[in-house]
């Protein structure tokens, strides 16, 4: 089974702060890593390859330094790596990114499965998987937490994590799956493979906009449908507020404060309201 895995380079921490004066992201001293969910997707792909044969291609889009996660993917067992890197790709929203990745996957042409992490820790959108699937016209299974080997009838069994349970889905191939951490325990890259991935003749390709046949206005900021118009630091800072009053009042005030901070206690939103409207 030939598998394309989509991987993204992200900051090594979500502890990104904004300069309170300029509103700029302060990036000093923060390294970059392969997005954690993507690592699980890659591990799943390598295990499928080890069980059934085939080839794993790691595909990423990003600046030149993102080649490091492509190399790391080879270290973990990918056979080939492709980095889509071009200033024309910069500033892309998920629409333009899924177009770019979709075009690259079409160019790769030979694949049975596309895997990616559920979401990236910098953007948290979880949109790329489904949007790539739609671009390619393939079925999708999101939140995949287990995959069985492909069957002879050209389908694959996927365990899909839901809220409060799971579903078993039989999906025809080729398909796009987005993977969550529960899927597997990832391996550490093999030292020898990492060294190979850095060699001049490493199986790593860099593709630009022309290589994937992307026209101006299709990719990057110019090809995006959404635009960031402002970034700012969330309000807050830790200033202790002592809640006063009798126990009932204190707790009531507390719950209001939590609501103000958009801090939903997970159990408290699981309730469903039906025809009778229950109390809400």
């Amino acid at each position: 089974m030939d598998i394309v895995v989509l991987i993204k380079q992200v900051p090594d921490s979500t502890e990104v702060k904004l300069d309170p004066k300029t509103g700029h992201l302060l990036r000093e001293g923060i390294g970059s890593i392969m997005n954690p969910d993507d690592r699980h997707a890659l591990e799943a792909a390598v295990r499928l390859k080890e069980a059934q044969g085939g080839k794993v291609v790691a595909l990423s889009m990003g600046p030149a330094q993102a080649v490091d996660i492509v190399s790391e993917a080879i270290g973990m067992g990918a056979d080939e790596g492709i980095l889509l890197s071009d200033s024309a790709f910069a500033g892309a929203d998920t629409w333009a990114t899924s177009s770019t990745l979709g075009k690259a996957i079409e160019k790769i042409a030979k694949y049975d499965l596309v895997l990616c992490g559920r979401q990236a820790i910098d953007g948290d959108t979880a949109q790329i998987g489904p949007q790539v699937a739609e671009y390619l016209g393939l079925p999708q299974v999101t939140y995949a937490c287990d995959i069985e080997a492909a069957r002879d009838d050209g389908t694959i069994m996927v365990k899909k994590r839901g809220e409060g349970g799971y579903e078993m889905v039989q999906c025809p191939l080729p398909a796009v799956l987005t993977v969550i951490a529960e899927m597997n325990r990832t391996r550490y890259p093999a030292i020898g493979r990492l060294i190979d991935a850095c060699a001049e003749r490493a199986p790593v390709q860099i593709w630009n906009a022309a290589d994937i046949g992307a026209k101006t206005g299709e990719v990057g900021l110019a090809g995006s449908l959404t635009h960031v118009i402002r970034t700012f630091a969330p309000k807050g800072g830790r200033r202790t507020e002592m809640l006063e009053g009798d126990t009932g009042t204190v707790v009531r005030t507390l719950l209001e404060k939590l609501q103000e901070k958009h801090l939903v206690l997970p159990g408290a939103q699981a309730g469903a309201v039906g025809q009778e409207g229950k109390k809400s």
Binding site: G31, I33, A64, V67, D68, V70, S71, E72, G75, L83, S85, Y188, P189, I191, L194, I195, A197, C198, A199, E200, A202, V204, I206
Partner: peptide, 13 residues
């Protein structure tokens, strides 16, 4: 040719 630096890559890993 864009390639990773082996020492950095191995150190990070």
């Amino acid at each position: 040719m864009i390639r990773s630096n082996a020492q950095n890559l191995i150190r990070e890993s």
